[in-house]
């Protein structure tokens, strides 16, 4: 079983700062991390490899620094990593991103056919969740999104639990297929020491656009992106309301009065 996991390097949105004057992202001092969903995807692929044998590869598109997320994946237990890095890829929206990643996947599969592609449910920076289904469409394999459990794996098909708005669907798909991973699928394990050693010195295979085959440059990067970011602005401020005044008792009395007056009390104790 050969699984390829797409891993993206993202700024840690927990510590992100926005310049209030320009409404742009202040990247200074913001650490870059592996997209958390992608880390769970690598972990899940490693679990499957332990049970069923095979190989886990990871693929990332980004600047040379994105090597860090490939090293992180090797720590978790991936066997090999590919980084596609070229100025021509820069400024890609999801359509152009799925195109570039698909070209790399096609190249990888020439030497080592792919049974499953894993993506994260979404990346925490762009946050669209559109890249996975885009790759699947381009590779002409079925996408199954929002996977919270892989319940069965054979050489011809997989059974999956797909999270819905109000429950789960149990799905069977032929292989190859592409799935996108939810965090609840597993817990990231502590990296075994040998993996950490391997990761330190690991150098991924790096491909520029010239290494990829049959590439239509017009579909790459900014040029190949139908969407453009127009303006950035601060989220609309909501209008504040009434401040109640006085001691806690007095404020609560006022509150009860307005709830009565506005006939909101009948919502209480309905359920």
């Amino acid at each position: 079983m050969h699984i390829v996991v797409c891993v993206k390097q993202v700024p840690d949105t927990k510590v992100i700062k926005i310049n209030p004057k320009t409404n742009t992202l202040d990247r200074r001092g913001v650490p870059s991390i592996i997209n958390p969903y992608d880390a769970h995807a690598v972990q899940e692929a490693v679990h499957l490899k332990r049970q069923h044998g095979g190989k886990v590869s990871v693929l990332s598109m980004g600047p040379p620094q994105a090597t860090a997320v490939i090293k992180k994946s090797i720590e978790i237990g991936a066997d090999e990593g590919y980084l596609i890095s070229d100025r021509a890829f820069a400024g890609a929206d999801t359509l152009a991103t799925s195109y570039a990643l698909t070209k790399a996947l096609e190249k990888i599969s020439k030497t080592s056919p792919i049974d499953m592609v894993f993506c994260g449910k979404h990346a925490i920076d762009g946050d669209t969740g559109q890249v996975g289904p885009g790759i699947a469409k381009r590779l002409d394999i079925p996408p199954i999104t929002n996977i919270s459990a892989i319940t069965k794996v054979t050489k011809d098909y997989v059974e999956l639990q797909r999270k819905l708005q109000d429950g789960y669907a149990h799905i069977r798909s032929t292989l190859p297929c592409l799935i996108t991973i939810e965090k609840e699928i597993n817990e990231i394990e502590y990296a075994p020491f040998p993996n950490m050693l391997k990761a330190v010195n690991y150098q991924p295979v790096v491909w520029s656009i010239d290494h990829l085959e049959d590439v239509d440059r017009k579909q790459l990067g900014l040029k190949g992106s139908p969407t453009v970011v127009g303006k950035m602005f601060a989220p609309p401020k909501q209008e504040g309301g009434h401040r109640l005044e006085g001691t806690p008792e007095e404020q609560v009395v006022q509150l009860v009065e307005v709830l009565k007056e506005k006939q909101y009390l009948f919502h209480f104790n309905k359920g």
Partner: peptide, 23 residues
């Protein structure tokens, strides 16, 4: 922007080679 709405929209955007704004 539900699980199914996002899924179908992403696939169609790639099929029709057009842009899709998320969420």
């Amino acid at each position: 922007a539900t699980p199914n709405g996002k899924d179908i929209a992403s696939a169609i955007a790639t099929d029709l080679k057009t842009g899709l704004t998320a969420d």
